[in-house]
Write a protein that binds this DNA or RNA. Structure first.
Length: 460
RNA sequence: GGCGCAUUGGUGUAGUUGGUUAACACGCUGCCCUCUCAAGGCAGAGAUCACGGGUUCGAGUCCCGUAUGCGCUACCA
């Protein structure tokens, strides 16, 4: 956990990272290391570099900058320096004698510690994703290792911790590609072997801006996907496809298959756009992510889905202990039936509500189209309820036979009864095959709902 | 301002060492199936491979330039 900047790194932010990884099923084998916990060691190491002459104390007073205008500041200063013909890297303290430096430090003058970057030469490395990288030392400023308050900075801390942990491969965002050269200089200063690097393309917002929590809100947070009904494996699968593609072209991959198929070499170099429309609830996140989630919901092993549905129903106070006990089989059948057209786990408690509770809404458009449009239904539906109730061995097939027979007697199309029944029983105009719904709802409940007066009471 | 990285249909990507009609997934359109909506099946629209030069018999693939986007250039990470 790279939390060297204690002001920005909050418990909240690290908890969100950890929860997100856990939810995705990305667990880890070793202990979690907090960079901030090793600050003392990092300070000592920087001091050693000063003693060896590889770093120096900079007594220049700290320049105050705000996050908002750093980029502009940097550009402005670079322009000014170029105009006046001064080397922006020049620093009067770089070549201060050791005695003078020690004397001022002992006198209590505040100082930052900077790495003394060679003026000549270049650093290079082979990135596993981006290939050969080279950067002249003249492009690298004498980076600050320790702030004047003694606080170690990120570039120093990562390198030191990675050396201590024996890290062999550093895999991170492309935003660190050019920083890597500085870190290599540090590995060399400490006489440690340089690890392999693999930089990953970034994920951009639809307007191609870098995706950030501040600008794009909850759509970037993993916990959002958990809370809005994503199956972890589905989102993990979708995410894996941003910037990487499986060699065989098969896109739906289990964790095991992904481990098998994955290689750093197959990662692309262009940033990926995460396609979502902030103000459209139907497209609140990437369409393909939504599709992938639906695909998982309808095809994953039922016994893996059931606990997720249980959690969802419980959160919405729709869960009954019988579903784990006497009605276990029934519950599994309902879920299997309705999951076919659901996109998120949330749908089980919203669109699927009528299967688990008598307290469900009637969709007004559905009621008008399927029930109120045909006035005779007010008379016929209760009669249909009688017929349904009279069915001896109640199944989808026998319910269908009864309904069709009554339709013929009443000289109406079966479709009229079917669509009306769907709305009476589920409140909706769409859903699974109606006879399966009858069977699932059962004889009593079906008859009772067919006799309901709600459509006329609520919409007339 | 300097340096770096990238650029294939709306989105995610595939396109081996340059070689026929640029492939797949999502999305979109139509048809079939059908009690509705999905799913599924079939068909289809959509890309002058950012632009301009060059090398070559031949370039999405190689070279140069331009543009655009992103990143770094911080006593942020």
């Amino acid at each position: 956990i790279e939390d060297t900047d204690l002001q920005r790194s909050t418990d909240e932010s690290t908890r969100s990272i950890i929860e997100g990884l856990e939810w995705l099923g990305l667990d880890f084998d070793e202990e979690m290391v907090f960079q901030s916990a090793n600050a003392d060691k990092h300070r000592v190491a920087a001091g050693r570099l000063v003693d060896e002459g590889k770093a120096y104390r900079d007594f220049t007073p700290k320049a105050e900058r705000t996050d908002a205008n750093v980029k502009k500041d940097i550009a402005d200063r670079a322009r000014a320096h170029a105009a006046e013909g001064i080397d922006h890297r020049s620093n009067p303290f770089r070549d201060l004698s050791k005695e003078e430096s020690d004397r001022r430090a002992a006198a209590g003058d505040p100082f930052a510690v900077r790495l003394k970057v060679a003026r000549e030469g270049a650093s290079q490395f082979t990135d596993i994703v981006y290939g050969e990288q080279e950067r002249a030392h003249s492009e690298i400023e004498d980076l600050v290792l320790l702030r004047s308050d003694g606080h170690p900075l990120y570039n120093l801390s990562v390198v030191l911790d990675d050396i201590e942990m024996g890290i062999t491969h550093v895999i991170r965002g492309q935003d660190h590609l050019t920083n890597t050269h500085k870190q290599i200089l540090l590995y060399q200063a400490f006489g440690a072997p340089v690890p392999r690097f693999a930089h990953l393309p970034l994920i951009l917002a639809p307007n191609k801006a870098k995706l950030s929590k501040r600008k794009h809100g909850e759509v970037v947070s993993l916990t959002t996907y958990r809370d809005r009904g994503f199956v972890p494996a589905a989102f993990r699968n979708f995410l894996a496809l941003m910037g990487w593609s499986p060699p065989e072209g098969k896109e739906i991959l289990s964790r095991e298959e992904m481990v098998e198929a994955f290689s750093l070499e197959a990662i692309g170099r262009a940033n990926a756009v995460f396609n979502f429309q902030e103000n459209d609830p139907r497209h609140w996140t990437d369409d393909k992510a939504l599709w992938m989630n639906a695909e998982y919901i309808r095809t994953m092993p039922l016994d893996q889905l059931l606990p997720m549905v249980k959690t969802e129903l419980r959160a919405e106070k729709l869960w009954r202990e019988e579903y784990d006990d006497d009605e276990r089989e029934w519950f599994a059948k309902v879920v299997d039936l309705i999951r076919q057209r659901f996109f998120t786990l949330k749908d089980f408690s919203s669109q699927g509500r009528s299967y688990f509770s008598e307290d469900f809404d009637l969709d007004e458009a559905a009621v008008r189209k399927n029930i109120l449009k045909e006035p005779r239904l007010k008379e016929l539906l209760p009669q249909l309820a009688d017929r349904i109730e009279a069915v001896a061995d109640f199944t989808a097939a026998t319910a269908e036979a009864a309904l069709r027979a009554f339709a013929e007697e009443s000289a109406v199309k079966a479709g009229l009864f079917i669509n009306a029944s769907r709305t009476m029983l589920t409140g909706q105009s769409v859903g699974p095959s109606m006879f399966d719904v009858f069977e699932i709802m059962g004889r009593e409940r079906s008859a009772m709902r067919l006799r309901s007066q709600r459509p006329w009471n609520e919409f007339q």
